[in-house]
């Protein structure tokens, strides 16, 4: 049987196109991204063998969250089942953030994405009602993290307060934070480690798997902030078994979506 690396070496779609990517983006950003189209994104999914990507808008760092959600909605409707949406919520008022999430879930969004580059920590009271709703619905909540002490303290606090969310720690291992990510994933069954990291240090995926177990690591590309075709390589080329790679590339994400009663549509 051909290994995943052998398949990738030939540029062929992986795993009968069953890969799930839980960390994607949509929309314009400050740096140049040469193709901003949903069609271009789906073309990449097809080539690599990604069934679905869950995207949030680049406005996740800004107060234009709702406008960003509108653009993501359009993309999800243009490509049902292939592009799924994380809702953004800006914490002006806690009730408003919850209302925005509730509205977007009604439109088919599948989770919540928060980013702290806006200077607002995830334990800000303005996020509380939205996080409570995410907890009620057992949603995946993708949190941008970069290995800071504050990141770990706040994720630990949220994980304790919202036991039914699936918290995805984006960029696990960045900022030399692999050991603390592993520790948190070990402390909480519902904390997962996301692989998105532009530089992709050699050995990081192996370290996360050795420390936290393959069942706690999920594939996230950060596409199209990064290149999905590049980010997939760190999992495919890592020195772990193909069974573990399959967990990271699909199995764990399937379980996370399933617990929120989300079943991505089959590829048409």
């Amino acid at each position: 049987m051909e290994t995943l690396l052998e398949t990738a070496r030939q540029g062929l779609p992986l795993m009968n196109s069953a890969v799930l990517d839980l960390h994607g983006h949509f929309g314009r950003y400050a740096q140049a991204i040469p193709d901003l189209t949903a069609k271009g994104l789906v073309g990449v999914l097809d080539r690599v063998g990604v069934k679905s990507i869950v995207v949030s808008h680049m406005q996740c760092i800004s107060w234009h969250a709702s406008e960003g959600n509108d653009e993501v909605l359009e993309a999800t409707r243009a490509h049902p089942g292939r592009i799924l949406g994380y809702a953004l919520a800006f914490p002006v008022f806690s009730a408003a953030a919850r209302h925005e999430l509730e509205r977007r879930l009604g439109e088919g969004f599948v989770g919540l994405k928060l980013h702290n580059s806006n200077g607002i920590p995830y334990n800000h009271p303005g996020y509380a009602d939205a996080l409570a709703l995410a907890n009620e619905r057992r949603l995946p909540v993708l949190l941008h993290t970069w290995g800071t002490q504050q990141d770990f303290e706040i994720v630990r606090e949220l994980a304790g307060r919202y036991p039914d969310c699936a918290f995805l720690m984006a960029h696990a291992g960045a900022g030399d934070g692999a050991k603390r990510c592993i520790q948190l994933a070990g402390e909480f069954e519902h904390v997962y480690l996301d692989t998105a990291f532009s530089a992709g240090p050699r050995g990081l995926v192996e370290e996360l798997v050795a420390g936290a177990g393959a069942g706690k690591v999920v594939f996230g590309s950060d596409c199209y902030f990064f290149s999905l075709t590049q980010q997939i390589g760190k999992v495919v080329g890592s020195r772990i078994s193909d069974e573990e790679k399959r967990c990271i590339l699909a199995g764990n994400a399937e379980a996370i979506l399933r617990r929120a009663d989300i079943t991505p549509l089959p590829i048409p």
């Binding site: 240090p201 050699r202 995926v205 075709t229 590049q230 390589g233 760190k234 080329g237 890592s238």
Partner: peptide, 9 residues
């Protein structure tokens, strides 16, 4: 870097 990333890209 994990060299497979450039390969898959």
């Amino acid at each position: 870097a994990e060299p497979t990333m450039a390969l898959t890209q």
